[in-house]
Simulated assay, not measured.
Amino acid sequence: MSTTLPPPGPGRSAAWATDPYANALRTGRGPLFLRRTDGWLLPLDVERWCGAADATDLSALRRCEGPVIDIGCGPGRLVSALAARGHRALGIDVSEAAVDHTQRLGGSALHRSVFDPLPGEGRWGTALLLDGNIGIGGDPGALLRRTAALLAPGGLLIAETASQDVDEHVRVRLDDGRAPAAAPFPWARLGTPALLRHARRQGWRPADQWESGGRTFVALRLDRAVRAVSQSADRTNSTAVISSQLPRNLSGDIPLAGS
C-alpha cells in the first residue's frame, strides 16, 4: 500500500524510523535507550513491548470503553489484545516497523503521528497513551488537546505515568549502544501529580488511578464542552482521511455509533 503522509507534525520524529528502533522491534529485544543530552539513559522495555499483553496491561485494557485508538502502538501487543477482547481497535505509530509488526499480528494500524489527520476523529471511545507515550512531542498540553479532539463526548483517556513525581520536558536521542545516536527529538516524562496538573488545565477530570506490576496509570475524562472546542479547533487544521489511505485490514474508520 502506498500512503501519502503530511509533513512531520509535533509528534513525529524521524528518529523512530532509524535502525536502532526498527532493529529492536525486529529482533524483539534491546538494549535500547532514550539518551538525554546530559548522558542520562532511560531504558526502553523492548522485550515487554514485543511480548503478549501481561496482567498489568490487562488492568488498563479492562477499563477501555467502545472503540479504542492506541497512540504510539509500537509492535501491537495492546491492539492485538483489544481485538481478542472484542474491541474495535486501531494503532497508530510513527515507526513503519511498528506498524508492520502490528499488522502481522492481525491488528489494524496506520503509519501516522497523533498530530496527523486520523480516522474517526471525535468518535473514539478510549484513547491509550501507555508505555511512556504521554511523552510524545514533549508538550503534554498539546498532546492532551489533540487527544481530546479524537474522543467522543464522555470518552476516556488511559495514560501510564512515571513512577517518580517528575515533570520533565527534554530532548532525547534513541541509542542502542552500537549504531550512531539518532537525531534528537522532544520528549516528556510525567508522574501522576504532574499529569493531573496538566490535565486540569485542559479541562480533564480524573476518573481512576491505580498501580499494577510496578507501573502507574491514570484514567481521565474531558468536560464535553471543552472536548467540542478542542475538536473544532483541530478539524480546522486537518484534512479528511480517505478510505484509500487505510490499510486493507482496517474496516472503514473503526468507530461505530453506540459501540
Rank of each mutant, 00 (worst) to 15 (best):
1 M>D: 11
4 T>E: 07
5 L>A: 14
6 P>C: 10
8 P>W: 00
8 P>S: 00
12 R>G: 01
22 A>C: 13
24 A>P: 08
25 L>V: 15
25 L>M: 14
26 R>K: 13
28 G>E: 04
28 G>W: 11
29 R>D: 14
29 R>N: 14
30 G>C: 06
31 P>V: 07
32 L>R: 00
32 L>S: 02
33 F>G: 06
41 L>T: 01
42 L>W: 12
44 L>H: 03
45 D>P: 12
47 E>S: 15
47 E>C: 13
48 R>M: 09
50 C>K: 11
55 A>R: 15
56 T>A: 15
58 L>I: 06
60 A>V: 14
61 L>T: 11
62 R>H: 15
64 C>G: 04
66 G>D: 00
69 I>T: 08
72 G>Y: 04
75 P>R: 11
76 G>T: 02
79 V>W: 05
79 V>Q: 08
80 S>Y: 10
80 S>V: 08
81 A>S: 12
82 L>D: 11
82 L>A: 03
83 A>K: 14
85 R>F: 05
87 H>C: 07
90 L>V: 10
90 L>W: 05
91 G>C: 07
91 G>H: 10
97 A>Y: 01
102 T>I: 01
102 T>R: 11
107 G>Q: 09
111 H>P: 00
112 R>I: 06
113 S>I: 03
115 F>R: 06
115 F>T: 14
117 P>A: 11
120 G>K: 10
122 G>R: 08
122 G>F: 04
123 R>Y: 08
126 T>Y: 07
126 T>W: 07
127 A>I: 00
129 L>C: 12
130 L>S: 08
131 D>G: 04
132 G>H: 08
132 G>M: 07
134 I>W: 01
135 G>D: 06
136 I>C: 07
136 I>Y: 12
137 G>P: 01
142 A>S: 12
148 A>Y: 07
148 A>Q: 15
150 L>Y: 10
151 L>K: 13
151 L>E: 11
159 A>S: 13
160 E>S: 10
164 Q>F: 14
166 V>C: 01
173 R>W: 01
178 R>F: 13
180 P>A: 11
181 A>M: 15
182 A>M: 05
191 G>W: 01
192 T>W: 04
192 T>D: 05
193 P>I: 12
195 L>D: 05
199 A>C: 06
202 Q>H: 09
204 W>A: 07
205 R>S: 15
205 R>D: 13
210 W>H: 12
212 S>Y: 03
215 R>H: 15
217 F>P: 11
217 F>Y: 15
219 A>E: 10
220 L>D: 01
220 L>P: 07
223 D>P: 01
223 D>A: 13
224 R>Q: 10
226 V>P: 02
227 R>D: 03
227 R>Y: 06
241 V>E: 02
248 R>G: 09
250 L>D: 00
250 L>W: 05
250 L>V: 15
251 S>K: 10
253 D>S: 14
254 I>S: 05
256 L>Y: 00
259 S>F: 09
